[in-house]
Write a protein that binds this DNA or RNA. Structure first.
Length: 878
RNA sequence: GGGCGAUUGGCGCAGUGGUAGCGCGCUCCGCUCACACCGGAGAGGUCACUGGUUCGAACCCAGUAUCGCCCA
């Protein structure tokens, strides 16, 4: 069934309506509605139609003030979509659909985050390969059909090709899930965080940072993951509790006055010891400050220093400083200007060369025993040597302590001194920090309290943003370094490409003025070997999707964007870094609003996780319950609130979706006809008056990004409409009370159904589109959002209180029948209705509807304080 | 240790000063000509705890407990 058919039939229908003919005599309209409406199959049919008709295509002639732009989170392509994605992306889609219906041109792109470690890992596992950058490119390489036990070593370029190949496949699967879910994305605006535009954008932004002095390199102690062999940024850290032990070591005073005992959890770093340190106010060590001691085993002379970070309560109150055991060591090293004696290499093993400070033969042979071993083995060896020499005091005392890990790693981080690139983010500069804090106030947060996470994070920054990573699959730094006559790189004079040439790969391309054969040669050049932190690229998603410096015409229509939807777990990373980059480049915020969604919890109130065996695949869920049903569940979760995974809610959503189809069918079959001037009956006007308040509340809710409230108020009204109004109006709509009453009913049914379908449309796009197509033209998703004042206008003098009153009377009549255990169709002999005078007058006017729905023979009225009824049932057939 | 959030009938939730609500589930009833993936009726809660403010507190304030998340 194509669009043109729908259009032409719809047009016929509407023409028929305006000349006032009875819709029931219009055979074409009736034939469009299935006898048994079903929600099954709607997803495929409508998502195809939407694509064909371009319903969600961004109209780029719209100017910025006519646009609503969304900085969609690009899901990690190498993972799998899970229920949490369905949940939060539905939230955003309801907002997108609402804004579109309000008449804004919605810019709603989709990206795939296929840049970085997760993709590397997936490719390794999927193909059974590993990257060895020293290998040459093999153009004929094809991965084995099944990954073998031994990983095959391949070149970096081969590895990257596999990454690109696999992510494209993954992304197709993702897109089909999103289409099935009904996201109103414009698929012609999609991007990958590793595609050439993203790489160019990322490199361009970096070069601009560099030119402005916001990017700088530094040779400094860096948190280092020995498994991945890469530097790690503050935002990627997490503390984990690990068992450890305090070892007490004897240092020997050089003044011959005995030993100084210190406690340490890392005896394996003894060879890297550069000082002892105690608190300046610590009475016990006053006389030691400024003196020297000799280290056990290695026999190196180190000074005893005072520093306030030494904790008198911890162990003996005096600690050894090593380069480097933890971040406190780094602080002491820097502030006390200590020597550097690193002993841990990039692979996490003890380096082969002993620090020069170790000069004694015993010391050097002790070091030789450690050389090449892991920190774990080195610890055992050192402890054994200490025992042997009698310099271990007492026994180790086991403890549990917090150890820093890379969030994706499984070995404790070490600290290694390396040359790295940093971006200024306020971590070292109070002025910039204040600016970045202020930016958060220029963004409206939904919910508002989520801003506290941002503030806390920024206030707790302890350094600039480390952006270089020693990995393979990522955006390379667009830099080369000149080599001097000895082939040593001159890092302080990086060679940069022309922006017009971006993206570039410094490993395969040459800087201007050089030739390929000068790579690595004396007086030649080398490319920067590192790639950027994935957040360095992700922090530019508004620029990437919006076409910054690629399509400036587009960029001016969509930037700064309206909305950044995202999870609360990545406020410190994605949200923060995006603000930092926009502040640097544009001196402004990247969006006006941000909506923070919650987690999906499993029934045990724990975060949903695969390891718990409760994985539910999104596609399976959508197929089982129907997309609208799943969306209903998602939209029931309040903004920012963690929500339980609840199949029950999906079943409720499914029933609602089916009910909407049935109610629409019935309303149309009753003769729903758009004809506002025919609405004269008090019951109809009262219904519409109430509907106007529903429109008002739903609109306000959506304006405040509260999709769940909007759904709730709509749904509540819808059930009352079905159960009370439609039941009461049946007789009149069938013509039981004359043509004028029927026309009023028909017009009211049409007006109400039209509004209700549109109110539901953002949440339940499939059923509403289906029902809409039965009697309207065009897509409901491009039809105007209902307007409360115009509903109020057709409600005229409608009295909302009448709805309350009739609801009470209906309930009373039904209760009488229910108590008597008879059918709702049972006859009522008489009903005596009591109500205040003002209501009584209204009730009299709807008596016809009441008698019909209740099958009441005689109605009489009594004036009273509150609304009630005395019901006498008629004779029941045996 | 700091921050944020939550605590309301069996379950999931709404309710920011005026006599406790919704949905699911449960019980009973009704095959009513849109829908049995339906309709009707009903049972079920001292709103985590302790103080305080107030004529009046689920709601405001202080504190406690438990749970969750984030950060040290």
């Amino acid at each position: 069934m194509g669009l043109f058919h729908r259009c032409s039939r719809g047009a016929t229908l509407r023409r028929a309506a305006t000349i006032g003919s009875d819709i029931m005599t219009e055979p074409t309209a009736a034939s469009k509605i299935p006898d048994k409406p079903t929600i099954d199959g709607l997803e495929d049919r409508w998502s195809q139609n939407w694509e064909t008709d371009g319903v969600y295509r961004f109209n780029r002639t719209a100017t910025r003030d006519q646009v609503y732009s969304i900085d969609t989170p690009p899901p990690t392509a190498s993972g799998s979509l899970h229920v949490g994605h369905v949940f939060s992306y539905t939230h955003t889609d309801t907002i997108a659909r609402f804004q579109r219906m309000r008449g804004l041109e919605v810019f709603y792109p989709m990206g795939w985050d296929d840049n970085g470690l997760p993709t590397e890992r997936r490719v390794q596992n999927y193909f059974g390969v590993r990257c060895d950058p020293s290998l040459p490119y093999d153009p004929d390489f094809t991965p084995p059909a099944e990954p073998g036990k031994q990983q095959i070593a391949i070149s970096r370029r081969n590895f990257i090709e596999l990454c690109e190949h696999l992510t494209v496949e993954d992304e197709k699967v993702f897109e089909s899930v999103w289409r099935r879910l009904g996201l109103s994305v414009d698929w012609s605006h999609s991007y990958q965080t590793i595609d050439s535009n993203s790489r160019a954008t990322s490199q361009r932004a970096f070069l601009r940072n560099l030119a402005r002095g916001e990017a700088y390199q530094s040779e400094a102690p860096t948190l280092w993951d020995v498994t991945f062999r890469t530097a790690v940024a503050q935002a990627e850290l997490e503390d984990r509790e690990r068992p450890g032990a305090y070892y007490q070591l004897a240092f020997h005073r050089t003044d011959g006055k005995g030993d100084v005992n210190i406690d340490t959890t890392r005896p394996e770093l003894l060879a890297a010891c550069v000082a002892l340190v105690a608190h300046p106010d610590d009475e016990r060590y006053q006389e030691l400050f400024g003196t020297t001691v000799r280290t056990p085993i290695f026999d190196v002379e180190v000074e005893v220093k005072a520093h306030p970070l030494a904790d008198p309560e911890k162990g003996t109150g005096i600690a050894m400083v090593c380069t480097f055991g933890d971040l406190t060591d780094v602080t002491w090293w820097r502030e006390l200007q200590l020597e550097t004696r690193p002993i841990i290499g990039w692979d996490g093993r003890i380096t082969s060369d002993a620090p020069e400070a170790i000069v004694s033969a015993d010391g050097r042979s002790a070091y030789a025993r450690l050389s090449g071993s892991t920190v774990f083995t080195a610890k055992e060896t050192v402890v054994e040597m200490l025992r042997h020499s009698g310099e271990l005091i007492g026994e180790p005392r086991p403890i549990n302590h917090q150890v820093k890990f890379f969030e994706k790693g499984d070995k404790p981080l070490e600290i290694v001194t390396t040359r790295q690139w940093y971006l200024r983010n306020g971590g070292r500069d109070g002025l910039l920090r204040d600016v970045v804090l202020q930016r958060a106030n220029e963004i409206t947060w939904h919910p508002a309290y989520m801003k506290a996470r941002y503030d806390n994070w920024v206030e707790g920054l302890n350094g600039d943003w480390l952006v270089s990573r020693q990995r393979f699959f990522g955006v390379p730094f667009p830099l080369w370094y000149r080599l001097d006559a000895n082939s040593e790189p001159l890092y302080d004079q990086p060679l940069v490409p022309d922006e017009a040439d971006l993206p570039i790969d410094p490993q395969s391309e040459c800087p201007a003025g050089f030739t390929a054969d000068q790579r690595g040669a004396a007086n030649g050049f080398i490319g920067d070997p590192d790639v950027m932190d994935t957040w360095a690229t992700s922090s530019l998603t508004p620029q990437i999707a919006g076409g910054w410096e690629r399509d400036n015409d587009l960029f001016e229509r969509v930037y700064p964007m309206n909305l950044r939807p995202q999870g609360h777990d990545i406020i410190r990373t994605w949200l923060f870094s995006t603000v930092v980059r926009a502040n640097a480049e544009f001196d402004g915020v990247p969006w006006t609003d941000t909506s923070i969604s919650g987690w999906i919890l499993d029934p045990d109130r724990k975060k949903m996780s695969k390891s718990k065996g409760n994985v539910v695949t999104p596609m399976g869920l959508l197929e089982e319950h129907g997309s609208d049903a799943v969306r209903y569940w998602a939209a029931s979760g309040r903004p920012g609130t963690d929500t339980a995974f609840d199949v029950q809610q999906m079943k409720v959503g499914r029933r609602l979706a089916i009910k909407i189809l049935n109610a629409s069918k019935f309303a149309i079959s009753l003769g729903a006809t758009e004809n506002p001037s025919a609405i004269t009956h008090p019951l109809d006007r009262a219904l519409l008056a109430q509907l106007a308040t529903v429109v008002e509340r739903a609109t306000t809710a959506f304006d405040n990004y509260d999709y769940s409230r909007a759904l709730e108020v709509t749904e509540t009204f819808f059930w009352a409409f079905c159960d009370d109004y439609v039941e009461m109006v049946k007789d009149r709509a069938y013509g039981g009370q004359g043509p004028e009453g029927a026309a009023s009913a028909h017009a009211t049914l049409a007006a109400t159904l039209s509004v209700l379908l549109r109110l539901f449309a953002p949440t339940l796009p499939f059923v509403t589109e289906e029902a809409w197509s039965w009697w309207q033209t065009g897509s409901i998703h491009r039809s105007p959002w209902p307007d409360a004042p115009s509903v109020t206008a057709i409600a005229a003098d409608g009295n909302i209180a009448l709805n309350e009153t009739t609801a009470v009377l209906l309930s009373t009549i039904r209760r009488a029948k229910s108590d008597a255990q008879v059918s709702m169709r049972a006859d009522v002999e008489s009903a005596i209705i009591t109500a205040p005078a003002t209501q009584l007058e209204l009730v009299r006017q709807v008596e016809g509807d009441l008698r019909a729905v209740g099958r009441i023979a005689n109605v009489s009225y009594v004036e009273g304080e509150s609304v009630s009824a005395e019901v006498v049932l008629g004779e029941q057939p045996a």
